[in-house]
Write a protein that binds this DNA or RNA. Structure first.
Lengths: 236, 236
DNA sequence: CGGTACGTTGAGTCATATCAACCATAGTGG
DNA sequence: CCACTATGGTTGATATGACTCAACGTACCG
């Protein structure tokens, strides 16, 4: 799982640019993180941490895409969020000192830095700005979760799928040909939307004949964002 | 909306007992809060704050029950959480300095203290223990929200209703006759579960004939927690 | 070349939403 | 005081979205 063919990124040139969290650190604090962190590489399907296990640090994503999901009663995955460059994961369990309540699995070749729990806890307790930024981050995740609850509870599968496509478009953008910069199986899409794989397939091909999207295997090109937004009944 | 027939509670004797958040405050800090806070009383149906409005403080619940909900596309409420004695609400919007993204409405006669934003922000920025406790609270809410997402996405309405009854039982307890200490309309129940009012009615009467519960108007007696837990497929 | 994982399509079923009618209760105003 | 209205609760009939099951196609991989 761990290789060493990529150079270990310095914090200064990684999270720094994308997240305001690490900008709050002093030079000394950054040095400590740089010194204590553990650089790791994973490929698709690798699991960073698993629901129910104790976690002794958090991950700072330098490259790649990770899905974070909970496992439901019958073993079905429910994808809660994705993490990409600049995001941190597993920090919640470190803060609360609880067992992991999600699993994190690599979607696309990933480089992360693993930073031990005590570093995070120390920063939170001694650097108020860091602590405040982390709280902002948590609050935003909470707000997103609440919106998602409302959506899943009230919208149809069609509306939710349209909305998920919009979100993926906003979060990951597209390549030069207009295809989403994230590649998911139909099952994974279903596990975001909260539906059956077959339903996703049927709806995707419906969206395709209605000219909202184009499909090329797993690659999805969003052709009509406005149309999808309308379909999804996004508020505002 | 504001009356003055109840004595203004002191922080020392209120949140203090139920929440570890305010235990982190120094004598001086408590004095400031006691001085700056505004005691308010509300009756059923009153709205403490509304989605989309700017909020200039947060509420600390001394007594009563409040429902916190989001309004969906077609105007249907989705209840996100309840707040009762010792809970705080609206702090998220204060922290992030965003417009309220939920509405808080009184379910049962409520007494609260309203504490201005700057007090909260100052405490968060200067008292690391307070800040940490608040972060713990946010993290727990986040975890609950994530579990809820998984439930709504994967469980049937019957399972969810059974689970909601269990949660209400755990959170509010029962009176001497075994009836839940919270009284909700069928519509409100539906707005927690994420279903139609009629479905709640049918399922409740099904639970009743199956001897899991007893009904007396709005009052619900949980007779067989084990049975409901089994019905709800709660993990663990 | 067989195996495994993923994708697709069709048919049938079922849970749940929707629509409509009706009852009970309580508060209101003439 | 009573008709009036509003709100909440209940039940039945009907419609349908979405799931399940099953078969089959496709592509990649060792």
């Amino acid at each position: 799982m761990k290789q060493s063919d990529a150079p270990i990124p310095l914090c200064e040139s990684c999270s720094f640019e994308s997240s305001s969290l690490f900008k709050t650190l002093t030079k000394d604090e950054i040095d400590i993180v740089n010194y204590e962190k553990d650089f790791r590489q994973y490929k698709r399907g690798d699991v960073l941490y698993q629901e129910g296990n104790r976690i002794n640090g958090f991950f700072c994503v330098n490259k790649g895409i990770i899905k974070v999901f909970k496992t439901g009663f019958d073993g079905k995955e429910q994808i809660i969020r994705f993490a990409k460059r600049g995001d941190i994961i597993a920090y919640r369990s470190v803060i609360t000192n609880e067992l992991a309540c999600t699993t994190a699995e690599v979607i696309e070749e990933t480089h992360v830095c693993f930073i031990p729990s005590d570093i995070l806890l120390k920063l939170v307790k001694t650097n108020p700005s860091f602590s405040f930024e982390l709280m902002l981050l948590t609050c935003h995740e909470l707000e997103e979760a609440n919106s998602y609850i409302t959506d899943i509870a009230q919208k149809t599968v069609r509306e939710r799928l349209a909305e998920v496509l919009i979100h993926l478009y906003d979060e990951f953008g597209t390549d030069e040909n207009g295809f989403l910069n994230i590649s998911l199986t139909r099952e994974e899409l279903a596990n975001i939307v909260g539906t059956a794989t077959e339903s996703v397939i049927r709806l995707l091909s419906e969206f395709k004949s209605d000219k909202y999207i184009e499909l090329q295997g797993r690659k999805i090109k969003v052709k009509d964002t406005r149309g999808l937004e309308k379909l999804s009944n996004i508020l505002g």
